[in-house]
Design a protein around this nucleic acid. Structure first.
Length: 420
RNA sequence: CCCGUUGAACUAUCGA
């Protein structure tokens, strides 16, 4: 037990994987049984720093130390794989567990369920639930909630809602996470009345909303421009002694930006800083985006430069936002420069960043540059999505290059993207 | 206090 605590300490604070392996070797040398928990911790730590191969490798290596890989270790590996979207490998390990052990437990099932939802495979997710109901490995509230989240992400929110009734029938009480997830699902499709109904229903069932629930509702109202309702939610939560956190405030800042009240939004930010509150990178991104959309580029840059001082260096969203603002203002050259600068800072552009610049180039009729960028997007693999094709094809058509657009369209279909 | 094998909230891109 104590050994494990020590390892956690070393891994969480210093990420000194070699030291931990050294400890394990020492223990082996002195004939100490290494607790399997230690390896679980090790797997999770590898996962946290993105060392997926090493995380998987622990399963094999622990055998060399006379440790049987437990179901917990397997679960940890599965979770790391799901977090990294390595779904094929997840299925592989899961199948192997079913056949050769260790026997999957309910946590295994929940991780598999999470993976199915994350990959948009909701049909399989539903099937998994049925399968679990028929087996010894019963689902629990987490299984249901995870399925509900998956369905919501796939846009099947009403179907997700029905599962709440199902789970109650099966004797599982939905908890605050279940309700918050479903409320979020309805908020995302702008069905605020349904969200509020659920909010009332959870209260009826004695389920107490938390800061997630309230922030979710606020965000829903902000998205549809109902800032006053969002503020009412904020007031209610405060009266009920539910303390707003940075996400709550970010949501409020977003809501103010969304109705054009940029100065009030900035005021909230200034208040937070004045009170010693730490803004998050999202705080900056929201405000910078507000300024960009309003064409106040100077304000955007001013905040952009302040980010480092607040311990929030710009991330790929920040750069995309700034690129968008620069393109919108016709400063294409600066946008291209910023893309280079982000790379130099070690921030790799993702599909959105590329698309933003691509769209800027297209709208500026710079077909040659757009073509170059479009080809470049493919170099690193999955940096292209259906929006890239939309943008590029639209550009070609506007410039009368139907001949060039058609092969691109075929390419899009060949890559499994459906026209929107 | 943080950490702990599984679930929920905030930010960026095209088009309609």
């Amino acid at each position: 037990k104590r050994i494990c605590d020590l390892m956690v300490e070393i891994l969480v604070r210093g990420k000194q994987f070699d030291d931990v392996w050294g400890m394990i070797e020492d223990m082996e040398r002195y004939d100490f049984a290494v607790p399997a928990d230690c390896f679980t911790v090790l797997i999770r730590s590898y996962g946290r720093v993105g060392m997926v191969r090493e995380a998987i490798g622990v399963l094999e290596e622990m055998v060399d130390f006379g440790c049987k890989p437990t179901v917990d270790c397997h679960n940890a590996v599965l979770d790391v794989l799901v977090e990294n979207n390595r779904f094929e490998e997840v299925q592989g390990i899961y199948k192997r567990m079913q056949l050769a052990g260790p026997k999957p437990d309910s946590i295994t099932s929940n991780i598999i369920m999470y993976g199915l939802g994350k990959s948009g495979n909701v049909g399989e997710a539903r099937r998994l639930l049925e399968e679990l109901n028929r087996s010894v490995c019963v689902p629990d509230v987490v299984t249901y909630t995870t399925l509900i989240v998956g369905l919501c992400k796939a846009g099947k929110v009403f179907e997700a809602r029905d599962f709440v009734d199902d789970m109650i029938k099966e004797g599982f009480e939905p908890d605050v996470v279940t309700y918050s997830s479903l409320i979020n699902g309805f908020c995302k499709i702008r069905k605020m009345e349904e969200s509020l109904e659920l909010f009332a229903e959870m209260a009826d069932r004695g389920c107490v909303p938390n800061v997630f629930t309230y922030s979710t509702l606020m965000n829903g109202f902000c998205k549809v421009g109902r800032l006053d309702d969002a503020c009412r939610v904020l007031k209610e939560m405060s009266q009920l002694r539910c303390i707003p956190n940075i996400v709550t405030y970010n949501t409020l800042i977003y809501g103010l930006c969304n109705v054009g009240r940029l100065d009030d939004a900035r005021g909230i930010y200034e208040d937070l800083v004045a009170q010693g509150y730490t803004p998050s990178v999202e705080t900056f991104n929201i405000l910078i985006d507000g300024y960009c959309k309003a064409g106040w580029l100077d304000n955007s840059f001013e905040l952009f430069h302040k980010m480092w001082g607040h311990g929030c260096p710009p991330d790929v969203c920040t750069y995309s936002t700034m690129i968008y603002g620069l393109c919108k203002a016709g400063r294409i050259e600066n946008a291209v420069e910023l893309m280079d600068r982000m790379r130099n800072k070690g921030c790799l552009p993702n599909a959105v960043a590329y698309n933003t610049l691509l769209d800027g180039l297209c709208k500026a009729n710079r077909l040659d540059d757009a073509r170059k960028l479009f080809d470049e997007m493919w170099k690193d693999g999955c940096n292209s999505d259906v929006f890239s094709f939309n943008t590029y094809i639209d550009c070609l058509l506007k410039l009368g290059r139907l001949d060039e657009a058609l092969p691109v369209y075929k390419d899009m279909l060949a890559n499994g993207f459906l026209p929107t």
